[in-house]
């Protein structure tokens, strides 16, 4: 396939996180629920997403922080499993994701009110942390698919994370930046749809990089 020049170049960005302590901690499920309602969105974001970057070499990766704490520190495996199985890809905003977690915990409280008063062992409180994110442009810019392929093979996993995971929440749309650019700027709807269908939550970030590289390689050879 000829290497079409993009209408607009793709500029690779990256986003790095610094953790800020909120001073809020929970030692019971009742506390957890109360605080999940009020902590900043950047805290909900942190506890449902940071593990994807911190544990990005593991597939399947450990569950989100709420699920892990409920299972490992409170010993409530059933509820932990329910929290772990919340499909974060379905949510286009942190607000919706927060509402879902709150609803799940409220339903559980109706069924098993007593577990909401159970306290964790000493030193195992849940500490609410929020992410302070720094977004910046990398030196990589692609004007066509070959350049895109070349840059993708070199950028950090933080950059891949930014364009694959965060586009959805940042732009509140059901796709990722790569797919959007391939479809809109290169006009390659077929490749765009293949990239859009990749489930970022079931691959490691390096795995995702390989998948997209394979797809672009095949396209460039076709």
């Amino acid at each position: 396939m000829p290497d079409i020049t993009a209408k607009n170049p793709f500029v690779f960005y990256s986003r790095l996180h610094l953790r800020e302590l909120t001073g809020i901690r929970a030692s019971t499920l009742a506390d957890l629920l109360a605080y999940i309602r009020v902590v900043p969105g950047s805290s909900i974001y942190h506890h449902t997403h940071h593990f994807l970057q911190r544990h990005q070499y593991l597939s399947p990766e450990p569950p989100n922080d709420f699920a892990y704490w409920v299972s490992e520190s409170l010993g409530e495996d059933g509820l932990g499993e329910k929290l772990a199985s919340i499909d974060t890809t379905k949510f286009q905003s942190i607000r919706d994701l927060r509402d879902r977690i709150v609803l799940l915990l409220e339903e559980e409280r109706k069924k098993k009110p007593s577990i909401f008063e159970k306290t964790t062992p000493e030193g195992e409180d849940f500490y609410f942390i929020k992410s302070v994110s720094v977004v910046f442009q990398t030196p990589y810019v692609a004007g066509n698919l070959s350049e895109f392929r070349d840059a993708l093979s070199k950028v950090t996993i933080s950059s891949i994370y930014f364009h694959m995971f965060e586009a959805r929440l940042r732009l509140e749309r059901q796709t990722n930046d790569f797919s959007f650019w391939i479809g809109e700027s290169l006009g390659d709807k077929e490749l765009a749809s293949k990239v859009a269908r990749l489930d970022p939550y079931t691959h490691t970030l390096e795995g995702l990089r390989s998948k997209i590289l394979n797809l672009t390689d095949r396209r460039l050879k076709s």
Partner: peptide, 30 residues
């Protein structure tokens, strides 16, 4: 440890810290 506890990650977070203390926002676009 390779991804989270080596000196290079520490260095990265110090750089982020020096940037973050100059801003109040949770998302800083440089």
């Amino acid at each position: 440890v390779r991804h989270n506890y080596l000196l290079t990650r520490h260095l990265k977070e110090y750089l982020l810290l020096f940037i973050a203390v100059r801003h109040d926002a949770d998302i800083i676009t440089l």
